[in-house]
């Protein structure tokens, strides 16, 4: 790879790795797995950088690789292996109720089937349009819509009950939402 390509790849990583990592984290609920997904994604991008760099939005390709790998990885896990959000004690801001509510909401998202979860992450964190989500997940736009609708209905059920009282603030791991059959 030429030096200017190396430089542009370094700049790409600097500009986009944090957002890509956070997308991976929201998809997996696991810091280590998110880190692995990010590195694997960047390896794939680097291998094809000269072609990817010429695209209108290289980050869209990287996001596609990352999200699809994450979807596949979750499908290979046991359906009984419920994802949990791993807390980061170092960034604890002391807002017990707010944090508990956010974690409760996202635990429900993590209980969704992988592709529904991907639609939720791309819609609510990446703020992508339906067409952009369809392109990222290689789905028909109608399939994005049906996945989003199914996810919203399930989340509405899961999150309808009032949140339980805050647990011990020292305990930062959230139990997964209960399984609900359609």
């Amino acid at each position: 790879m030429r030096q200017n390509d190396e430089d542009s790849f370094t700049a790409f990583v600097g500009a986009n790795s944090a957002t890509l990592f956070r997308t991976a984290y929201l998809m997996t609920g696991d810091y280590q797995r998110a880190e692995d997904l990010l590195q694997t994604t960047l390896v794939k991008v680097y291998q094809r950088w000269t072609r990817i760099e010429a695209m209108d939005r290289p980050v869209a390709y990287a996001r596609k690789v990352l999200v699809n790998q994450s979807v596949s990885w979750w499908r290979r896990r046991s359906s009984h292996e419920a994802p949990v959000l791993m807390g980061d004690e170092g960034s604890w801001d002391g807002r017990v109720e707010g944090v508990a509510e956010h974690e409760r909401v996202w635990a429900a998202v993590l209980s969704l089937p992988p592709r529904q979860r991907a639609v939720m992450v791309l819609r609510y964190y990446e703020d992508l349009s339906e067409a952009e989500i369809a392109a990222t997940l290689e789905m028909a736009p109608g399939t994005v819509k049906s996945n989003a609708h199914a996810a919203s209905r399930r989340l509405a059920v899961l999150l309808a009950e009032p949140a339980p009282p805050p647990a011990d603030p020292a305990v930062r791991t959230v139990s997964p939402a209960p399984e609900v059959t359609a």
């Binding site: 990592f21 956070r22 997308t23 984290y25 929201l26 810091y31 959000l85 980061d88 960034s91 801001d93 707010g98 944090v99 509510e101 956010h102 974690e103 909401v105 996202w106 998202v109 939720m120 992450v121 609510y124 964190y125």
Partner: peptide, 9 residues
């Protein structure tokens, strides 16, 4: 929730 949890990590 997405923004808060993403920014926290």
């Amino acid at each position: 929730a997405a923004r808060h949890l993403a920014e926290r990590v």
